[in-house]
Amino acid sequence: MTEPDTLISVRDLTIAFGPKVIQQNVSFDLKRGSIFAVMGGSGCGKSTLLKSMIGLLRPTSGQILVGGEDYWAQNEKRRTELNHRYGVLFQSAALWSSMTVGENVALPMEMFTDLTPEVIRRLVELKLGFVGMEQAIDLMPSEISGGMRKRAGLARAIALEPDILFFDEPSAGLDPITSARLDDLILTLRDGLGATIVIVSHELPSLFKIADDGIFLDARTHTPIARGSPRDLRDHNTIPEVVAFMNRKADIAPASETKG
């Protein structure tokens, strides 16, 4: 059913908080090496979908197949093993505030590998070097700026050599230049590490630049309404909500609200 180059395949997923359905009928395949964008307006459930993919929120129904294994049907131990294929950059970077930047990157390696402290230190320097943060290795998260925190979070996300990276609004709260640099960094890491990337965002310039596949979630109908790369959706899609979103038009929003 799934093609060989499919890494994750989401099948008829429904995510709900109690009786309140966030998204339903979500199905898509994540192709190896792609940068997959989860798009949609604020509050449509993008981050929630991401949470259920990385094991933080159990979906109400449906499947997430990781390499053919039904993720949520596994026991906790197996899920943790599968999670080690993932690297996650959280919206707020989520660095552990009681540790230095270096310790943040080192902790997963200390917990899950048998490497010696010297080797770990070298690896931490390397990962921080990838994101241009090697000078901040001994600083606390509270001592660095928001953009640096995001990059440090990225270094931590790639600590265990994951093959799938999840980014939750990577450019939120960053200035345009920092944000553009982060985009370049994401592309470089994808090519360098051979990783597949899932990115939740509504930063259009960044999506057009880096993403080559994606899904558009609609907040009103609680279902995905379009599939394809952001560029494709912008140029060839005819669904009013998608067109409005991709072209940053305001006039469609009230119209769609009164419809519903």
């Binding site: 999670n83 996650v88 505030s97 997963p108």
Partner: peptide, 11 residues
């Protein structure tokens, strides 16, 4: 601050 989430994702 999502720090607990980050711990959980790493297992």
């Amino acid at each position: 601050n999502e720090e607990i989430d980050a711990l959980q994702v790493f297992g």
